[in-house]
């Protein structure tokens, strides 16, 4: 946690964007290890692959197109500083009301989680409960996430791929969920 906070501070303070990209990869890797400690291996896997892997490469690709130095801002901006301070303060205040970590009486462990854990083997028959929830119980959400990736790719192609000569300009509209 201290390492995470330190990396985040360094990201904010550094002006060299190349170092910032590398530090954000390290930040992702540290969060991935944190998720492993919390026994959330699937999330850790995603964080390590996406955060530390592919997004770093894409950031470096973007960096190659622009400058690697952050523009220094001269004046201290009071209003944004106050907004950030207030939002952070409210968030910290909200965590005070949260149930203790790992508390079995916490609302998140009371709602649908027990049903998934107890019934998924009988209803879905997949050993990895995360996969069962992701692909079966929450199939709609995962479909939505896939659509987000699809939309992102189409947008980038439309925005950045325009300089290239291409035979067809419009992509067919995505299939709608009924």
């Amino acid at each position: 946690m201290l390492l995470l906070a330190g990396t985040a501070l360094a990201i904010v303070l550094l002006r060299d964007l190349f170092a910032v990209v590398m530090l954000s990869a390290i930040f992702s890797l540290l969060s991935a290890s944190l998720f492993v400690l919390l026994d959330a291996v699937d999330v850790a896997f995603t964080e390590a692959a996406v955060g530390a892997g592919i997004s770093t490469v894409l950031m470096l690709g973007a960096l190659a197109l622009t400058s690697t130095r952050e523009k220094a801002s001269r004046n201290f901006q009071l209003v944004p500083f106050l907004v950030v301070l207030l939002t952070g303060g409210v968030l910290v205040y909200a965590t005070l009301d949260m149930p203790r970590f790992g508390d079995p009486q916490a609302p998140i462990h009371q709602h649908v989680a027990p049903r998934y854990l107890n019934a998924s083997m009988r209803e879905v028959g997949v050993e990895n409960v995360v996969s069962a929830v992701l692909a079966s119980y929450r199939g709609y959400d995962t479909y939505g996430e896939t659509m987000v990736i699809f939309t992102a790719a189409v947008s980038v192609l439309l925005l950045l791929g325009g300089g290239r000569k291409r035979s067809r300009t419009e992509l067919e509209p995505p299939e709608e969920a009924p």
Partner: peptide, 24 residues
Amino acid sequence: VELGVGITVTAAMVAIFFAFADRG
């Protein structure tokens, strides 16, 4: 379903990378 997700994610990431790299 997982196959569909895998194919879209692979192709999307490759397309985004190619678009960035090509522009450079």
